[in-house]
Nucleic acid binder design. Structure first.
Length: 202
DNA sequence: AGCAAGATTAGC
DNA sequence: CTAATCTTGCTA
């Protein structure tokens, strides 16, 4: 596989979230190329999922979420952190994969500058957005075009993946829609409640 | 028009 | 454990 096609992001959103592990998120900036391997994801689906921003239909904020597959959907959370998602499913459906963690691959120095820290570069949704310089202005962009400065590229599939309930939400916690590469240091720690919610712990 | 909650993070 | 910080979307 040389490049993603829109149809790679159509199908079961949960399966796509799992499959996205190992793909590369690349941002070409004036200071150089910033890239990371996706090691933690979560699926959100408007139709059935109360935690999804599109659950109550299209709103000004969630509009990009209803775009075509391979679109970027970014939003501001807690008034200060940007979160990055990849839209999946045909236009109008409203589903996306939140990228929660990256393993830094290229441009570590620039990432550290943006983060003003050498550690904790990309081990959280807000942190990776800051490290890669992702902003709300990138909302609605196509991530699959070969010329896109912000793009998604296929990578080696992740063999050893774990799953759990999604983190940091209050609705839909029982859905096993979070995926991560086992043993990767950039994956955020799984709270016990996220395991219990999906029956993985007593 | 007013307000509570939020797909988080850093710092004490 | 809690403050920070501000937009969104509901309720009136």
């Amino acid at each position: 596989m040389s490049a993603f096609r829109p149809e790679d992001f159509v199908g079961d959103p949960v399966a796509i979230a799992r499959r996205l592990l190992g793909a590369r998120l690349v941002h070409d900036t004036p200071e150089g190329r910033l890239a990371g391997r996706i090691v933690e994801t979560e699926a959100y689906v408007a139709a059935t999922d109360p935690a999804c921003h599109g659950f109550r239909g299209v709103t000004p904020r969630s509009a990009p979420l209803f775009g075509p597959p391979g679109t970027a959907y970014l939003y501001l959370i807690y008034g200060m952190h940007v979160c990055f998602n990849v839209v999946v499913e045909p236009a109008g459906v409203g589903a996306a994969i939140l990228v929660r963690a990256l393993e830094p691959v290229e441009g570590l120095e620039a990432m550290a500058r943006r983060r003003s820290s050498a550690k904790a570069l990309t081990d959280g949704p807000g942190k990776l957005a800051q490290a890669l310089g992702l902003t709300l202005g990138m909302n609605g962009r196509d991530l699959l075009g070969p010329g896109a400065s912000l793009r998604l590229e296929p990578g080696e599939p992740v063999e050893d993946a774990g799953y759990s309930g999604r983190i940091g939400i209050t609705k839909g916690t029982e859905l096993p829609w979070r995926f991560f590469e086992r043993g990767n240091r950039w994956v955020s720690r799984t709270p016990p409640c996220a395991l219990r919610a999906v029956g993985l712990a007593p």
